[in-house]
């Protein structure tokens, strides 16, 4: 259990994030879940790249154990992607709040349905 500590944390964050996305109706909370889910992937990549006692990959006779730098670089990109997704999600939430006056999924759906009913009545 302890040997797989980082893996356990990774999977916990992953599942917790997915759970929040599906279980919460608040658009902000959903985004929190999404961020948590994406963050867990950063750990998935980075932890295997780190060797205990390893240094940055600098060629020197003094060091023999190196950490793999590639996962870190990849995750830098993934963090940028995660930040932009979150920013865009929040921007959309602001616009939704302006248009609907709510950020609760069920209230928004109810508003949409009432509009659809009106449209149907108009056309008949």
């Amino acid at each position: 259990m302890l040997a797989h500590f980082t893996n356990v944390i990774t999977v916990f964050l992953m599942v917790a994030g997915l759970f929040i996305i599906t279980a919460r109706g608040n658009l902000i909370k959903k985004l929190v879940g999404l961020s948590l889910f994406q963050t867990s992937v950063y750990l998935l990549y980075i932890t295997p790249g780190k060797l205990i006692g390893g240094t940055a990959p600098i060629l020197s006779p003094a060091y023999t154990v190196y950490s793999n730098p590639l996962p870190h670089v990849l995750i830098l990109t993934a963090i940028v992607v995660g930040v932009s997704t979150l920013a865009l999600g929040l921007a959309l939430t602001v616009r939704i709040r302006e248009a609907y006056g709510s950020i609760e999924e069920d209230e928004i759906l109810a508003l949409d349905h009432s509009v659809e009913d009106d449209e149907a009545r108009e056309s008949h």
Binding site: L18, I21, F37, V81, G89, T93, R95, I96, Y100, V115
Partner: peptide, 18 residues
């Protein structure tokens, strides 16, 4: 305005997929 909720829904689903 339903374009906004459609985009939001796609953002969540699409990000999970990615």
């Amino acid at each position: 305005r339903r374009a906004l909720t459609a985009a939001y829904q796609y953002l969540i689903m699409g990000s999970i997929g990615a």
